[in-house]
Design a protein around this nucleic acid. Structure first.
Lengths: 347, 347
DNA sequence: TTGTAAGCGTTATCAT
DNA sequence: ATGATAACGCTTACAA
């Protein structure tokens, strides 16, 4: 709020020579508002002249409805989440909802949810932010949709994360890789765990097991991928292929390979997951599994708004969004000599 | 808002056997609240048991203060702005302000500002979103800080954009480049214009002029850079070096070169601007001018909050934040044969 | 068709 | 130390 008091519906009423509720009647777009043409015109002109903007807070207070939805994402530094948000905002705005975006920045989300709650958002979309770990009371009596998580309690929108892992595994197996590693999630992010599970299960079914030293865990960041890959390259026995839980990790891994002068894909194949824009900008381009981020967001928004508007029961779990393998430059058949060479560490 | 009505201070009052204002007195953390220890304890317990959360909307309404600041950025798909937001959020949250983030998504910002205004944010930070072009009335009686823009009307926080252009030019000149091109901004984004101006002015002072066909304009996106670079490479006479207004553009340009099998930096040098994380992930790594995004955001937040709290006049324009050249792999001296070769277009 | 009155959940200014 | 009472700016019956 600015210091000097803003123009209210009272001011408009005074100027138009009508009562304040009449102003409200005219301006709130209430369909069954029966106002004389003349007064309506006067009110509209007065509002225009005064530059009147309704106070949405006051409106929300009385309507018990803010027409705002809260969105919690773990970070915006991963372009994947930016895409989810983009998809979701487009829908929300079109439906007349404002989006209050809470950037987790890696910090605990509870306070953020708290804030959103306090600001009386009509509903909440929580994306991969560990809603399961949230105190029960925090989300009591809230309308919530979860993205990329599972829950008995709230409806969810997910991608087919296990399929993502499976596709990556099948691709590597098909190329002939048997010495396969993975850089999985360091924290308990549901979708990433499922990618891992799908990957490992598929390998196992093919009779390939991932040695424990080849199953690394790293934060879902470039740096995380970089460090994990560095460790992998430092091992006596190296894998011929690595699946990374996210593209950001894969980009870090690729960087680590380049720094260590390990050729990709000749010496080691790399598969990411998400298909962020950056995946096409490296050389070689990153082979990855495309996950429909925007559609994930759009669906979540549609589902939430549907629930808010109390339409027919839309909560029925829809099937996960399909993912697809995108073959690019970081994967190739393994060379025969794999599994033994040792590198001297870079940097 | 959820359907079933939420617990209010009245409920707490009833349970604690006190009046509602007493509850407010206890819970609002008012320093000069003189409440008996016993009552205070009872109130706190009742609140705890009921899971009471104050309605920030109601509070804002009566206090004429929402403790929220609005932030408008042109897009979150450029990591640079994500960093600005990160820097700014850290400060805001520490100072007890919530951040209402408005993602421009390339669409006009007026409606977004409108929303923020309606939601009674205490102040507004507008980053490179063309606040100058906004209708006068829209920002009337608002407390505003501009980032990376100039304005007589509002205080601003900027980086030294002209220096950014100058550093890029000096670097290229030093390497011996004379056939120099630039991919500038397609729209009127102030900082980008100034980068361009600094670049061109420095070249001119060194007696180098940029041919008009070598001065391209493109949206500040990867695709924009890609297409502009493709056009540049298709020219009969090619430049030996290209300065891109942003890293995203430079990344696109680099990609275009790789696709066209034009070697960087041997055949063409590339300089970006911003120093986003991605700049270090390509091969070769991108030479760029580092701009302190987070610090830009942090300063803006500090300035705005200072104004809101009505501290001493902090509005005095501070000097722009310094930028610095980061020499990496996409720049090298030109080869002698430059300026003539023609490529057959890729794709 | 329009004005009056009530109330949304707070905080703030008084009496008591 | 605490309890009425009056805002804050709006929407929504209900009266006129």
């Amino acid at each position: 709020m600015a210091k000097r008091t803003r123009v209210t519906s009272h001011d408009v009423a005074a100027r138009a020579g009508v009562s304040q509720p009449t102003v409200s009647l005219v301006l709130s777009g209430n369909p069954r508002a029966r106002v004389a043409k003349a007064t309506r015109a006067r009110v509209l002109r007065a509002a225009e002249e005064l530059g009147y903007r309704p106070n949405l807070l006051a409106r929300a207070l009385v309507q018990q409805r803010s027409f705002a939805i809260g969105v919690v994402v773990p970070t915006l530094s991963n372009p994947f989440f930016v895409d989810v948000v983009n998809g979701l905002e487009r829908v929300a705005v079109a439906e007349g909802y404002a989006v209050l975006l809470c950037n987790g920045r890696g910090e605990p989300v509870a306070p953020q949810v708290e804030t959103l709650r306090g600001r009386m958002v009509d509903g909440l979309i929580i994306d991969a932010a560990g809603a399961a770990g949230l105190p029960e009371a925090l989300l009591a009596d809230m309308t919530v949709v979860l993205v990329e998580e599972v829950s008995e309690r709230w409806p969810t929108v997910t991608s087919d994360a296990e399929a993502a892992g499976r596709l990556a595994a099948e691709h590597l197996l098909e190329l002939g890789h048997r010495a396969v590693a993975m850089i999985g999630p360091a924290t308990d992010v549901h979708a990433l765990r499922r990618r891992e599970r799908g990957f490992l299960a598929t390998l196992r079914q093919a009779g390939v097991s991932v040695r424990s030293r080849w199953l690394r865990r790293a934060p879902a960041t470039v740096r995380g991928g970089q460090e994990a890959m560095r460790a992998l390259l430092g091992l006596d026995a190296r894998p011929t292929a690595v699946f990374c839980a996210t593209d950001l990790v894969a980009l870090g891994a690729l960087k680590a390979c380049v720094s260590a002068r390990v050729r990709v894909p000749e010496e080691v194949s790399l598969v990411g997951c998400d298909d962020i824009e950056m995946a096409r900008l490296t050389t070689p381009e990153l082979t990855t599994v495309a996950v429909p981020a925007r559609e994930l967001g759009a669906r979540a928004a549609r589902l939430l708004i549907g629930m808010l508007e109390g339409g027919p029961d839309t909560r029925g779990r829809r099937r996960p969004l399909p993912v697809s393998l995108v073959r690019r430059g970081t994967t190739a058949p393994p060379v025969a000599s794999a599994g033994g060479a040792r590198m001297e560490g870079s940097r």
